[in-house]
């Protein structure tokens, strides 16, 4: 893994890519800047995205628009209770004429997998997807097949209308780098949406503006973003604070620290910066951490959601001012 700090040109490439994708998403979804930013950060940080909100706010549209904007293969799975793992991963079928089994790849073999209403499928099927997300490979009939790179799962989930659903357990949610609540649009954005949908599906207007290769290269650049010890310390302070606060029954895991840093690097790169700021950490703490923690009974009784508790933690953790290692060459 490279440790060289990206050059300004490379940073510009990342931020241009992010900007192009953002423009495409904006043609479909207006007023979702925060969600779009977090989405892009997740994409660039090789994370998976969980869109969770009430039906009809554009979760699926966002996922599909993202798939179209990136010139990549898109697999779409509509999760239903009777969906089988093989429907996700693919299945080996016997070719009688050739006397052999042939693997029919499932929709998971794509750069971007849109998993609609993931909580409607049975845990078994969910597990198949979540395993492939973690391993980035699929094992069928004893044969392991690598998934294409980049590989991004955008799952949507409906938090209400829970009857007959199988909500993702916390351990599974941890696999998603970010969970984004899309939220209702503002009045003006909603009018703009009506205009955009007037007579045609705006999704058809979305053009592919970045290839899979572009995305892979950008992901590589993002990995090289510098995180100063002070920033890492701050990030760890925040994560540890979630474990110590009385408002949370379960705090954020060490994996969440890794993912938060990765996402923060992506956000820094999108801003054309070669280093992470505490602001990146702050801005991504809720999307990255909130779905991994479980509020305590008191907090829930007080109406304090995980998001509120995370914000509260952020407002208490000091931003370290100490200078990190003295640079080698400083005029």
């Amino acid at each position: 893994m490279t440790t060289t700090v990206p050059t300004a040109d490379q940073l510009a490439e990342v931020s241009r890519l992010a900007q192009r994708v953002r423009e495409q998403l904006d043609t479909v979804l207006s007023g979702l800047d925060d969600a779009v930013d977090a989405t892009l950060a997740t994409v660039l940080a090789e994370g998976h995205l969980l869109l969770e909100d009430v039906p009809g706010v554009g979760k699926t549209t966002l996922a599909r628009a993202l798939g179209r904007a990136l010139d990549a293969t898109v697999g779409r799975i509509q999760f239903t209770p009777d969906l089988l793992p093989s429907d996700v991963t693919g299945v080996s079928v016997f070719r009688g004429d050739e006397h052999r089994f042939e693997f029919r790849a499932g929709p998971v073999f794509a750069n971007i997998v849109v998993a609609d209403e993931i909580n409607r499928a049975s845990p078994k099927t969910q597990a198949a997807l979540l395993e492939s997300m973690q391993e980035r490979s699929v094992t069928v009939d004893g044969e392991t097949r690598a998934l294409p790179a980049p590989f991004l799962v955008v799952a949507t989930q409906n938090p209400i209308d829970m009857e007959g659903t199988y909500p993702l357990p916390e351990a599974q949610r941890d696999r998603f780098m970010t969970r984004i609540a899309v939220g209702y649009p503002t009045s003006r954005d909603e009018v703009a949406m009506l205009d955009a949908h007037d007579g045609h599906d705006p999704l058809n207007d979305v053009r592919a503006v970045a290839s899979a290769a572009d995305l892979t290269r950008a992901i590589g650049i993002v990995r090289g973003i510098y995180a100063a010890p002070a920033v890492k310390q701050y990030l760890v302070d925040v994560v540890r604070a979630t474990r110590e606060t009385a408002d949370l029954r379960l705090g954020a895991s060490p994996r969440s620290s890794l993912q938060l840093l990765a996402a923060a690097k992506a956000r820094a790169a999108m801003a054309g910066r070669d280093h992470v700021l505490p602001d990146d950490v702050k801005s991504l703490a809720v999307p990255v951490l909130a779905h991994r923690v479980i509020p305590s009974a008191q907090a829930r009784a007080a109406g304090r959601t995980a998001e509120v508790v995370i914000q509260d933690v952020l407002s208490r953790v000091a931003v370290p001012a100490a200078r990190a290692p003295e640079p080698l060459a400083r005029g």
């Binding site: 700090v5 510098y226 995180a227 100063a228 002070a230 920033v231 070669d274 280093h275 992470v276 700021l277 505490p278 370290p320 001012a321 100490a322 200078r323 990190a324 003295e326 640079p327 060459a329 400083r330 005029g331």
Partner: peptide, 12 residues
């Protein structure tokens, strides 16, 4: 200040 604290090369 940000460069001084967080950037790899410090501030100029």
């Amino acid at each position: 200040v940000e460069d001084h604290r967080y950037a790899p090369r410090g501030t100029e």
